[in-house]
Simulated assay, not measured.
Amino acid sequence: MKRQEYRCRHRLRVRWSEVDRQGIVFNAHYLTYIDVGVSHYWRQLGLPYSLAMPQLGGEPVMRKATLEYAAPAQLDDELEVALRCERLGRTSWTMRAALFRGERALATAELVYVWVNLAAHAAQPIPAALRELFERFEAGGDVLRVETGSWSRLQALAAPLRRAVFVEEQGIPEQEEWDEADAEALHAVAVNALGQAVGAGRLLRTDEPGVGKIGRMAVHRALRGSGIGARVLEALVQAARERGDHTLRLSAQRTAVGFYARHGWRPVGEPHEEVGIPHQWMERRLTDA
């Protein structure tokens, strides 16, 4: 069994509260680790659980979990939880999980889930869209698409996501979120397999020739850290490059400076505040990329 056999892998670290008197991870915590991995699997599919399940008309319910231990995990071990879907039945599917320290598997598990209509308390066939998504992901396919276009074409997708992130989550006043620039901007929206917007951003022109501005970058809170923001950002960067821009600027929330730095952006100027939130101007030279 090798780590590379699993497309979905998630890192975690053993905490003090998870170690028993023997100095090793208490056996019940292994299932908790694997459950954390299962949540990451849904993120890898591009599905925010609370948004996707109502549209799919059901939820997965665990029928069986079998664990086999090979070696103990200890305090401060860096572990990797790996999962894959091994079998798809009519109403159920089987997942194989493994817990790795380096290349060594410390434990393996078999998980059987049933697709259930919770209102009727009855199993039902796995939705075709979910079945196809499992198969596509395990075959190495892309689970998202990024659409670019005008506000008139993409508003219905982008607006609810931006409202959820900026207005509801961050407390920005509604009137501060919407402006006339939306109508002039090129928008990018990441769309999952269910047609739900999970990431968005926009590209504007500035008064300086060849200089563009990116803004309104938003990712569904359940999917942050899964690469969606990078997909949206690079779609906008590519659009700017194609129209001839040589420089891009953006005003990043201070908590997101590291994200942009990892994608070739550098801080410029002094920190400032926008709508009550600390920001930092950042820049990327496209001619150097």
Rank of each mutant, 00 (worst) to 15 (best):
M1L: 11
Y6H: 06
R7K: 13
R7Y: 04
C8R: 00
R13I: 05
R15A: 12
W16S: 09
R21I: 06
I24Q: 08
V25A: 02
H29R: 15
Y30W: 07
Y33V: 05
I34K: 09
V36M: 12
G37E: 03
G37L: 07
V38W: 15
H40V: 14
W42F: 15
G46I: 00
L56A: 04
G57Y: 05
M62E: 08
K64A: 12
L75Q: 11
D77N: 11
V81K: 12
A82G: 04
A82P: 12
T91S: 12
S92G: 09
G102Y: 10
A105C: 11
A107C: 11
A109Q: 13
A109C: 13
V114R: 05
V114K: 10
H121R: 14
P125Y: 01
I126N: 03
A129G: 00
E132I: 02
A139N: 10
G140M: 00
G141T: 04
D142T: 15
R145F: 06
S150T: 15
W151A: 10
A159T: 11
V165P: 12
Q170S: 07
E176F: 04
W178I: 10
A183S: 10
E184A: 12
A185Q: 01
H187C: 02
A188E: 05
A190L: 14
G199M: 12
G199V: 14
T206K: 01
D207F: 10
G210R: 00
G215C: 03
R216T: 04
M217G: 07
G227E: 05
G229C: 08
E234G: 07
R241Y: 07
R243F: 02
L248G: 13
R249Q: 15
Q253A: 05
T255R: 15
G258R: 03
A261W: 03
A261N: 05
A261F: 01
R262S: 10
H263G: 00
H263F: 08
H263K: 09
W265G: 01
H272I: 07
H272T: 12
V275N: 15
Q280G: 04
M282W: 00
E283V: 11
T287P: 01
D288L: 11
A289I: 10
